[in-house]
């Protein structure tokens, strides 16, 4: 989702660009509960969009895993789009043009030339998005509620356990989350470093 959007934004010279950039970046500024609240409204049967989703597509998104997924996606979008957009803009325009004059399509150019040359931006976006989604709380709580076994995510489970004074259980959840996040981040940064070293060799 982030990739085509970032590509379009980086290449666009449209007058609407600032507007779209602002919409994508809104979750950076607003409290997560605001996003969650409006998504909750949008998915419910009191709005046109919600009625369309439920009636036509049979998608009832509130308090389901799908709803959480979409909520997290909207909320984490700027963390993916912004590094990628910066990455695209940093690449010299002549790289794209050189590929075009060699007869390469836009897609081939994106896949074989642009993306391989912006790996740091790509990894940065993945790390930020991942980290942010893992720690996501407000949007998920608003849309998903906290239904055990269905929409209860780790961060909310911890909060619930602490509220009920089950510190041992909270600690188990929290420590697992910490360990998983740490391992994945270390792996990603290690990979970035190795890649940079290989590039200079």
């Amino acid at each position: 989702m982030g990739l085509p959007l970032a590509y379009a934004l980086a290449r666009s010279r449209s007058r609407l660009r600032p507007l779209i950039e602002a919409v994508v970046s809104l979750p950076l500024v607003l409290p997560p509960t605001v996003i969650g609240f409006y998504l909750l409204l949008a998915f419910s049967d009191s709005t046109a969009l919600g009625r369309f989703l439920i009636g036509r597509l049979g998608m009832s998104l509130n308090f389901t895993f799908g709803g959480i997924l979409i909520g997290s996606l909207v909320y984490s979008l700027p963390f993916m789009v912004q590094p990628l957009q910066a990455g695209f803009q940093q690449l010299p325009r002549s790289l794209t043009e050189a590929a075009y004059t060699l007869g390469k399509s836009r897609l081939t150019t994106l896949w074989r030339v642009l993306l391989p040359n912006m790996k740091p931006a790509l990894l940065n976006g993945i790390v930020l998005t991942f980290a942010h989604t893992l720690g996501e709380f407000g949007v998920v709580l608003m849309i998903g509620g906290s239904l055990p076994g269905r929409t209860r995510v780790a961060s909310i489970a911890i909060y619930d356990e602490v509220q009920s004074l089950h510190y041992a259980q909270a600690n188990a959840y929290a420590f697992t989350l910490l360990a998983v996040a740490f391992v994945i981040l270390v792996a990603l940064y290690w990979f970035t470093k190795k890649d940079a070293a290989r590039r200079l060799a």
């Binding site: 010299p92 002549s94 043009e97 050189a98 075009y100 004059t101 007869g103 030339v113 040359n117 590039r199």
Partner: peptide, 19 residues
């Protein structure tokens, strides 16, 4: 479009693919 013009273009900054 440029893709369908059989030509060779050498850019001022060479534009070699670093990867």
């Amino acid at each position: 479009p440029p893709q369908r013009r059989p030509l060779g273009f050498v850019f001022q900054d060479y534009a070699l693919f670093p990867n």
